[in-house]
Design a protein around this nucleic acid. Structure first.
Length: 504
DNA sequence: AATTGGCCGCG
DNA sequence: ATCGCAA
DNA sequence: TTGCGATAGCGGCCAATT
């Protein structure tokens, strides 16, 4: 199939806000594909290239300037081949050679095709349809039940491959897809709850939410694989997790848990320390010891447990994993008792708790209500120092605000982070006017303003920063509201934020 | 050897 | 993370 | 009410270039 056909459908999908219309256009294209083209087109039209991250980002994709072709000739298979070849080029001079390869491909692409490729490579397809919509389209195109497709997708987290199976063998083929030990499945996700009272209803399992990183560990005899939340294989980075799982009596098992770096006294290290272990094989256990803590079991010795209720899975988990490798938990129906457990988690410097319906099944890939996360929210009053112009649907609005904390020593404001989260369209419109009024200067990206507007911001904490002059950066800042009743001299100070650093 | 652009992975 | 929109 | 997509930041590493 020609790339041009895919680009045309992408344009049509972009043009309509209706999901049903998007799905029907995508399904129409899928029906016209050769079997080997299915994974490629499914990927392209859901914003992914099969090769995953290939080391080509914004600068590369938009840095290429080649006269567009007049006639369309590129096929999606040719694009796929080129993208596959790029990461194989490494070493001295590789940047230039990679650029040549991309230029060669771009030279054969028409202007709309070039634009599509740029957006695809930067992960900014912006056609209002990604994997969720594509799942519906695949189901429609190959006449399989969406539920059957979703089920297969959660067990084999590769929509291109699953779509090819749906096309060839239909629902029967999908039904044959089972949980494969050593092959990752999508982790079940939690939705946020405002309070412990809101989260606790009926008999629940309350579990510490560790300030670490999610891991899914598979063992089949002597073989172990460790995956991240996004199903990246990090087995080689976490040898101590492999050791822990190899030491279990149970030889075939799939476990869900959290990995985190601990100090010698057992208290948590900052999240950054955990993350640094995920990034490299160089930093070993001796430097930053990382420990797994498990909270669920999905498979044991040939038996899938994802369709068993949580309380049953927990019983199995307890029998397999030693107590010191389990996440602390409590079974209760009492919000007060659950609240005390949350307090204990906070005293242990953890993030909060998870509250799980004990009767719920493991719904892989879903962010349902059967798992709720409860985290205390801290809010601070900070001052806006600058605002960046938004993109996409925020084009023309001042969006991402630079946040400053007051420095009592100088009376000035120290930048500690940015945020674009939590803004309604109404706030966006208001702040665009407001900050243009306060403008003192601007550059290509941002408008710099008089530091007078106070904003209340919720954060999950702070982390040490080498980037920001104050030495601290906000974690997951989001706007709560603008404080017109507060003077900038009443804003929270950099010292207050630094003191949070000591605590965590 | 040091610097730096840029991508990756996370919540 | 949060918001807005489709269904 | 639910699900999905869109909006992006920060730290850290990798690898190319100076």
């Amino acid at each position: 199939m020609l790339l041009a056909e895919v680009v045309a459908v992408s344009a049509g999908v972009t043009a309509t806000p209706s999901r049903k219309a998007k799905i029907s256009q995508l399904a129409g294209l899928l029906k016209g594909l050769e079997p080997h083209e299915i994974p490629i087109a499914v990927g392209f039209l859901s914003g992914e290239v099969r090769q995953g991250r290939i080391g080509v980002g914004y600068a590369f994709a938009f840095g290429i300037e080649v006269t567009p072709a007049v006639e369309t000739s590129l096929t999606i298979a040719e694009v796929d081949d080129t993208l596959a070849a790029i990461p194989t080029v490494t070493g001295s001079g590789s940047q230039v050679r990679r650029a040549r390869m991309l230029e060669g491909m771009f030279a054969r692409a028409t202007a709309p095709e070039q634009e599509f490729l740029r957006r695809l490579l930067t992960g900014e397809l912006r056609q209002g349809a990604l994997e969720g919509i594509m799942v519906e389209a695949v189901a429609a195109a190959f006449a399989v039940a969406p539920a059957a497709l979703r089920r297969a997708l959660m067990l084999q987290a590769d929509l291109g491959a699953v779509a090819a199976i749906a096309a060839q063998t239909g629902e029967a083929g999908l039904a044959d897809i089972g949980l494969q030990v050593l092959s990752p499945l999508k982790p079940m996700l939690a939705s946020p709850a405002a309070s412990i009272e809101e989260a606790v209803s009926g008999l629940v399992s309350v579990e510490w939410k560790l300030d670490g990183a999610r891991i899914q560990v598979h063992r089949d005899g002597s073989k172990v694989r460790v995956f991240t939340r996004n199903l990246n294989d990090i087995t080689d980075r976490l040898p101590e997790v492999v050791s822990v799982v190899l030491a279990l009596d149970e030889e075939t098992v799939v476990l869900d848990g959290e990995a985190m770096a601990l100090r010698p006294d057992g208290t948590p290290q900052p999240f950054q320390e955990t993350m640094s272990r995920f990034g490299t094989e160089e930093r070993a256990f001796a430097e930053v010891p990382l420990f797994p803590f498990f909270f669920d079991v999905l498979h044991v010795a040939g038996e899938d447990l994802i369709d068993r209720p949580l309380h049953e899975r927990l019983t199995r988990l307890d029998a397999i994993v030693p107590a010191e490798r389990l996440i602390p938990r409590l079974s209760t129906a009492d919000p007060v008792e659950a609240g005390r457990f949350l307090d204990e988690a906070m005293e242990a410097r953890q993030e909060g708790v998870m509250v799980k319906d004990r009767g719920s099944l493991y719904e892989a890939g879903r962010r349902g209500k059967s798992w709720r996360k409860v985290k205390p929210v801290h809010t601070y009053d900070l001052v806006v120092l600058a605002v960046e112009w938004g993109h996409g649907r925020r084009e023309g609005f001042l969006s991402n605000i630079h946040l400053g904390a007051r420095d009592p020593a100088t009376g000035k404001f120290v930048m500690v982070g940015k945020t674009f989260k939590g803004m309604t369209d109404e706030m966006l419109a208001w702040q665009t006017t407001r900050f243009l009024d306060l403008e003192v200067s601007r550059d290509r990206w941002a408008v710099y303003v008089l530091p007078t507007q106070v904003v209340e911001v919720a954060i999950d904490g702070v982390q040490a920063s080498s980037r920001y002059p104050g030495g601290v950066a906000l974690r997951f800042a989001r706007v709560k509201r603008y404080r017109d009743d507060k003077d900038p001299q009443e804003a929270d100070t950099i010292d207050t934020l630094r003191s949070l650093l000591q605590e965590s």
